[in-house]
Design a protein around this nucleic acid. Structure first.
Length: 473
RNA sequence: GUCCCUAUCGUCUAGAGGCCUAGGACAACACCCUUUCACGGUGUGAACCGGGGUUCGAAUCCCCGUGGGGACGCCA
């Protein structure tokens, strides 16, 4: 057991605040979080905001909001890289003194020229080491008035290798790497350097991150070794593709996790979906986060990219909706109706409507839409009215209204209502659908609804009679 | 161009050399249930990228193609 694995597990999620928390970031966070929970370790949130031009406080807040909505609580942080500049400068100073880093005076223009030249020769563009000190090598004279960058003195021979916890062993020749910049001319440190110092200082044992960082890993390992720091274990998660199989972008798919809230998804459904995207535990499809934590491990993570499938998310959402507490759903209905300007939602209790509809809708917005007609009487379209509210139907509704009017409010329970309905059927000689469908149109403005006796019960005596009277007048 | 990763039903995946006539789930379709529409239940169709090896035996191991993705920044 090496120095890293003998330490208590500590993972991190390290987004850069240049936008919202999207679905790919959310899954990375979920896996890192679950791994820490699984092993009784700690989960760190670190905001990588060294790109001051692109980082915004709004984006930081958006990430925090997304994490909170998903319930992925961190144990440490959030740390901000912009608040750790002193530490980075200190380490850069040490590396310069130790000779593991050096000043480079090559200008951007010279670098561009070098790159163009290499590309013309079909070579991999890389820094040529012109300012790299070597024994016996005479360095150029530093041009006056030029602020140098600091470059890492990367090993030139051998290979960097690590056993990726999801992809298996990966080896990269040092010859493929160049002396990358760790501090810009203005003195600010760059990404690969900050990550290394942070992972070291924060005692990160398992770096679980996106696939796009595989190429950074050998550089980071070399840096860690130059610093004499322990090398954490790495696990690289493959990316999530959009619904259409192409890379997620803002044009399609790469929406904020908060958009899922907006679209009526339950966080537990999104979490379950994400957990199952690129990870599996046999045939298990539906499980709680508690169960997920027990099962989760870095083995059984798929190493190829996964395509996002909204249909399956919808299915999971519908499932969790059926399980959800009525009062909670009532709150969600209320929240959405208020947004549409429907503020009178005391009677009927939205929780009762939720109970009526939750096993027939796929998301909270559909639930709220269904509830809408209970608070705001909807006039059926002319088409529906001519089709369903025929003279015969109206006669039956009149008969029913008369019978319902004789019931007390307390008698408005499904059993009694079903019995009353049958009395009307007997009196008119009609079949159930011939009365129930016009009744739905009259009450809710649409020909489909849950069991009509339950709808009548939830709507209540006064409202039912009022709406029937309006239809019959 | 160079380097790295990757490849099972339309989609997410199971599969660790014989348990595979390739399993589950979403979606699709059919039927059943039904007071409408849903929900639900039952069932059907649907895949190992191609070519070479290794082996008594390959979806599984190796190599080569091909497809897909990523990286090659004084971005993160």
């Amino acid at each position: 057991m090496n120095a890293v694995t003998s330490r208590a597990v500590k993972t991190r999620f390290a987004p850069s605040p240049t936008g919202y928390l999207h679905i790919g970031g959310a899954r990375t966070a979920l896996f890192a979080w679950a791994y820490a929970r699984r092993h009784g370790g700690k989960f760190v949130l670190r905001i990588e905001d060294t790109d001051i031009a692109r980082s915004t406080p709004e984006a930081v807040q958006a990430i925090l909001d997304g994490m909170q909505w998903l319930g992925l609580a961190h144990d440490e942080g959030p740390y901000y890289q912009t608040q750790r500049m002193m530490r980075y400068k200190e380490v850069i100073g040490q590396m310069l003194a130790a000779g593991t880093a050096y000043h480079c005076y090559t200008s951007k223009e010279e670098l561009d020229a070098l790159r163009a030249e290499q590309e013309a020769k079909k070579e991999k563009p890389r820094y040529d080491g012109r300012w790299r000190p070597e024994p016996g090598k005479v360095l150029p004279v530093p041009p006056s008035g030029v602020q140098p960058v600091v470059r890492f003195r990367n090993p030139t021979e051998g290979v960097v290798a690590w056993d990726d916890q999801v992809k298996g062993r990966i080896e990269i020749a040092n010859a493929e790497l160049d002396d990358f910049i760790i501090a810009r001319a203005d003195g600010t440190p760059t990404y690969n350097f900050c990550v290394v110092v942070d992972d070291w200082d924060m005692g990160i044992t398992h770096v679980i991150r996106g696939d796009d960082h595989v190429n950074n890993t050998p550089r980071q390992i070399n840096l860690l070794q130059a610093l004499g720091a322990p090398v954490p274990l790495y696990g690289h998660l493959s990316m999530i593709l959009g619904d259409d199989g192409t890379k997620l972008s803002k044009r399609h798919g790469a929406v904020s996790v908060m958009q899922y809230d907006e679209d009526g998804y339950l966080p537990e459904a999104v979490l379950n979906y994400l957990a199952r995207l690129g990870w599996s535990h046999g045939d298990e499809e539906i499980f709680s986060m508690q169960q997920f934590i027990e099962w989760f491990g870095l083995d059984h993570i798929t190493s190829s990219a996964a395509q996002f499938n909204t249909e399956k998310l919808n299915w999971l959402n519908a499932h969790y909706l059926k399980l959800a507490d009525d009062a909670r759903l009532g709150q969600e209905i209320r929240r959405r109706l208020v947004r549409e300007g429907v503020t009178e939602t005391a009677v009927p209790d939205p929780a009762e409507i939720a109970a009526l509809y939750k096993d027939r809708v796929a998301n909270l917005n559909e639930l709220a839409d269904s509830a809408h007609a209970f608070y705001v009487a909807a006039h059926p379209s002319d088409e529906l009215a001519t089709q369903h509210l025929t003279e015969a139907a109206k006669a039956a509704l009149a008969d029913l209204a008369d019978r319902l009017g004789r019931l007390a409010g307390a008698d408005f329970v499904p059993e009694t209502l079903a019995k009353t309905l049958k009395e009307t059927l007997a009196a008119t000689g009609l079949k159930m659908p011939q009365v129930a469908i016009p009744l739905r149109v009259a009450l809710l403005g649409q020909p489909q609804s849950p069991a009509i006796d339950r709808v009548l019960a939830v709507l209540g005596r006064d409202e039912v009679l009022r709406r029937l009277a309006r239809t019959l007048s």
